[in-house]
Design a protein around this nucleic acid. Structure first.
Lengths: 152, 152
DNA sequence: AAATAATATTAGATAAATCTAACATTGTCA
DNA sequence: TGACAATGTTAGATTTATCTAATATTATTT
């Protein structure tokens, strides 16, 4: 059977394009249509930078925008944005809940590591986190020992 | 106390500069002096690309090169190269030995993920790998369960 | 509705990272 | 040792990603 999600994943955006798409994805969960100013503020760049990044995302069919108007995600953009953010969440959880890094460090590091990991690796990472977090049984052992060694 | 390793780490190279430095570090373990051609072959780019990358690494004080001569790592380049490669090895071990990804996928993914992880996170990741790999005791439990769920 | 504020766009500059094509230097070997 | 091959350098183009300054459009507010 034809699996579109692989096609979407295979569309290789640059690291920065992925970052902008993720930002737009997050902003559009609140507002649906996203203003360039909000993207600029969120990513800490100037408006012309956002503008030119968006022209590349438009060319890739990830977003649409009427002249002088606000940004909307295409259905591809929606899917890929969700995928990128999903990856971000799993990596952040691993850094935070397993490696016990401070929340802000985990967040910042996840931003940098989320690019270039395969879907398969993300799935496995999630599986591992879930097994280790299941603290009822024996499997919490290594996480316990890790925490003990971390703060003796 | 003054810790120079942090100063070296703090020198922020671009992702690509780090990649070239790592390649040079690996090549110079065999030959000491490294030819541009070898770097180009290893990284799959053309000679002029290597040349211009090297001019940036020279500017950053990571490598030295006499006119029409071969590349040598500076002591900073040596230290940072070792650090980058060390990070690469730990991430690859995690992907390979823990997540059980195929060796080639683990290698390729490590190349992409190794940038932007902090030294602290790498240390913790190594600690976790070592605890999980210690298969004598109870701590292997979660790795066992992970493997079982992976290949039921 | 006109003035002002906010937002989006264009123009033009810079740096990184790549390429091809042309040229220079060094090394090898017949 | 001189020709040819290998290696390194320069020149010039392209794309991404960023900036500042100037301009255009839309929204708000008096």
């Amino acid at each position: 059977m034809l699996d579109l999600s692989n096609i979407i994943s295979a569309m290789k955006l640059t690291t920065k394009e992925e970052d902008y798409l993720e930002t737009i994805y997050l902003l559009s969960r609140d507002t649906d249509k996203v203003a360039l100013t909000d993207i600029a503020r969120e990513r800490g760049v100037t408006l012309p930078t956002v503008f030119s990044a968006l022209s590349r995302l438009k060319r890739n069919g990830m977003v649409t925008q009427p002249h002088y108007g606000k940004i909307a995600l295409s259905s591809d953009g929606e899917k890929l944005g969700a995928e990128i953010f999903g990856t971000h969440r799993i990596i952040r959880r691993f850094l935070d809940e397993v490696l016990q890094l401070p929340a802000d460090v985990a967040e910042a590091t996840a931003c940098r590591m989320e690019h270039g990991i395969t879907i398969e690796a993300v799935k496995r990472l999630e599986m591992l986190i879930n097994i280790m977090r299941n603290c009822d049984g024996k499997n919490a052992g290594c996480l316990m020992e890790y925490k003990e060694r971390l703060h003796p």
